[in-house]
Design a protein around this nucleic acid. Structure first.
Lengths: 211, 211
DNA sequence: GTCTATAAACAGATAGAC
DNA sequence: GTCTATCTGTTTATAGAC
């Protein structure tokens, strides 16, 4: 059962994620939720409150997504096992962002918040980015032997995440240049392959340097 | 000497690049250009025409930027020379996007067009992206020996560009996680270092595979 | 070409009936 | 809780004086 509040929240994320906060009117959101304009002020105290609620919704949603992906306690005992865990993370993040419709909406919301930060970005940073980035740094450390909090490690993790997110952001340009009608399973696999080649090559170089 | 038309164009790019098309009013643009609302309709036929003119302006601007960077005919005779050319491109693109105020505006405009494509994206794709991407693919090919139009090469070039652009897009998140007050020369150098490490590691792997 | 004044449509917020 | 009608301010576009 979907309450009116939940329906509004989903319609808002759909609008904000696809067209952006400013370009999405509260009438449009209310209509998409099968409700009316006044219900937004009633449930969220206004459009800004709706943006804040979207951020909290994303933190909870991604928390469960990431938790499910981490259900089978990832083995970090050996560098090889840690590298496999890292590769699995890349695979699932590419799939989520490029193949799951919810992934595109969540990413759209986050990207626009980064371009024009509001308090919603603070919510997402503290509730999601900070912990997730630190966790990936720890796995990276288990592969290369570098300290998890080293500047080079933190930047390398950002660079890897950046490759994945860029294929989402630049989708219209990528599709055109690759002559792809759309990104499906086969295209996502090709993208994953390129990112994993970069990842493995870099990890090998970092490991060599550490020895 | 700056004509009114040019002043409006620059004020528009400033607004569109920083806050986005929808969030930037034509009054605000006119005021920033020291003019009035009616002058926008007079010179550009309306707000949409101004967006299209911004796209053409960006194509011309980036054309001269890229041409100046390519003034000393890049040597591609040997794989090593081609790799150095590729590294130089990464260096100058990082500097432009992270240190040059114009770079942030141009990138902001392009990123928002990708998230919400209009005909302005077509203008930028055909006038800039397509040719630039193909040129980088050719250099990549000179390094690794792979065909310049191979799917793997085109994707690898996108992944490299993605790393650079992501450090611009995610700047607020990166700064917070890296505990950087802002991105200056030192921070840009650290970012360049990470991206070049990824690039060289991947190129080496591709070259080994080709042999 | 430049500007002021205004038109017409839109936004978000809210009062009040149910 | 839900909805309609309305208030208030802002948007883009434009008419018309200079």
């Amino acid at each position: 059962m979907a309450t009116t509040r939940e329906a509004i929240l989903e319609a808002a994320l759909r609008g904000f994620g696809k067209k952006g906060y400013d370009a999405t009117g509260i009438r449009e959101i209310a209509a998409g939720a099968g409700s009316n304009v006044a219900s937004i002020s009633y449930h969220f105290g206004g459009k800004e409150g709706l943006r804040a609620a979207c951020a909290e919704h994303i933190v909870k949603l991604m928390g469960t997504v990431l938790a499910s992906g981490r259900s089978e306690e990832p083995p970090l005992a050996t560098p090889e096992a840690a590298e496999a865990t890292l590769a699995a993370l890349v695979r699932s993040l590419v799939r989520f962002l490029l193949l799951d419709p919810d992934g595109a909406l969540v990413a759209g919301f986050m990207m626009r918040e980064m371009a024009q930060p509001s308090t919603a970005l603070d919510t997402i940073y503290e509730g999601l980015f900070e912990g997730a980035h630190a966790r990936v740094c720890a796995i990276w450390s288990a592969v290369t032997g570098q300290p998890a909090d080293a500047e080079a490690v933190r930047l390398a993790v950002f660079a890897t995440i950046g490759q994945i997110l860029y294929f989402h952001i630049a989708r219209p340009v990528v599709n055109r240049r690759m002559e792809w009608p759309a990104i499906g399973e086969a295209e996502a696999a090709a993208i994953t392959d390129t990112i994993l080649r970069n990842l493995h090559a870099r990890l090998a170089a970092d490991r060599d340097q550490a020895s």
